[in-house]
């Protein structure tokens, strides 16, 4: 009995967005008379955090506190069009639309503030804490709440903005495949360390070292959630998951979470991840899509680590103990 250790590497890129049919999303934003801002969307939060990151982008652009921004989603009677939450598009597309809407709303807000303060709008800055003041003169300022009230009750203006982001449709040239299918690329590299039981083919993933380039981490804690959860899904895909364990034979498809195999809390690997940032030219504050990519580099890294450990190259997913053991048997001269 031996437990064989190995290490494998993989590096990948991942496209942000889809646009083979055109890829738009809209956002509307308005200030309430309580000095808060409401972003209206028809976008979906699956847990990735658009309700959080969208508010951050709006707060950043408006120059107001995060807590004063609310997101109202998703109702097709009130929310403007969104293609949906998929293709790592949410933060990029919806974020861009929110940023554009927030810019427009900010312009009105600054304009009203300038009128109230009797200064030039170009001389005003936001402090991010709920006040607008003359640049360099924090005392000469006005609360965002008062600007909102003045706009509504004195000036007859709405502090609001419309946002739209469209990646236009790209036709594919049928002969060559020439196309423009995405907006930017995120990147990842994983180094996996595994241990293989040479009598059973069981694999333990000991450690995953990951580097992710994600444009800009809008919210590092949420990015970290995607990284850890995605890397876990990568381990899961590499070693466990399938709806058809005897593919292409359809027998014995799992029906519940007992039969459908995924690593449990007792099977998680030590994880060391680092984020690097190369802001995209077209994402809001340089953001790229991160959600999907995180699962991808661990899979081949584990496959390569298994080869490194025991000399068995498994070329079909999932890499089950059975496939490894058959390979080990073949190497030992006992083909089955």
């Amino acid at each position: 009995m031996a437990r064989l250790k190995g290490r494998g590497v993989a590096a990948v890129n991942y496209p942000t967005g889809m646009n083979l049919g055109g890829d738009p999303s809209q956002a509307l934003i308005h200030a309430t008379t309580t000095g808060s801002f409401v972003i209206t969307l028809s976008s979906v939060d699956l847990g990735q955090g658009i309700k959080t990151v969208g508010a951050q982008i709006a707060a950043e652009t408006l120059g107001v506190p995060y807590e004063s921004v609310m997101i109202d989603t998703a109702d097709t009677d009130t929310g403007p069009h969104c293609m949906g939450t998929f293709a790592s598009r949410g933060t990029h597309r919806i974020g861009n639309a929110i940023m554009m809407a927030a810019k427009e709303a900010r312009e009105v807000m600054m304009c009203v503030a300038a009128t109230e303060l009797e200064v030039d709008a170009g001389d005003l800055v936001t402090d991010g804490k709920g006040r607008i003041h003359v640049n360099g003169a924090p005392d000469k300022g006005i609360a965002v709440l008062d600007v909102a009230l003045a706009a509504h009750f004195k000036h007859g203006k709405t502090i609001s903005g419309r946002g739209m982001y469209l990646k236009p449709k790209s036709e594919v040239v049928p002969e060559t495949g020439e196309m423009d299918p995405d907006s930017c690329q995120a990147h990842a590299c994983t180094i996996a360390e595994v241990e293989v039981d040479d009598e059973t083919g069981d694999v333990t993933v000991l450690k995953m070292t990951n580097a992710y380039e994600i444009g800009r981490a809008m919210n590092p804690a949420l990015a970290h959630q995607q990284i850890v959860g995605g890397a876990w899904m990568g381990i899961s895909h590499a070693l466990y998951e399938t709806t058809e364990p005897y593919y292409p034979n359809r027998a014995h498809g799992p029906l519940d979470f007992s039969e459908y195999l995924m690593p449990g809390p007792g099977d998680i690997a030590e994880m060391d991840s680092v984020i690097i940032e190369r802001p995209s030219s077209n994402g809001p504050y340089g953001a790229k899509g991160i959600g999907e990519m995180t699962a991808n580099s661990p899979i081949p890294a584990i496959a390569n680590a298994i080869f490194d450990a025991c000399g068995v190259r498994v070329t079909s997913m999932p890499i089950t103990p059975e496939k490894i053991l058959r390979g080990l048997d073949a190497l030992r001269g006992n083909p089955n």
Binding site: Y246, H252, E259, L261, T320, E322
Partner: peptide, 10 residues
């Protein structure tokens, strides 16, 4: 026997 967890062979 074969099932979702492992094959009879394994």
């Amino acid at each position: 026997a074969d099932d979702a967890y492992a094959s009879a062979w394994y």
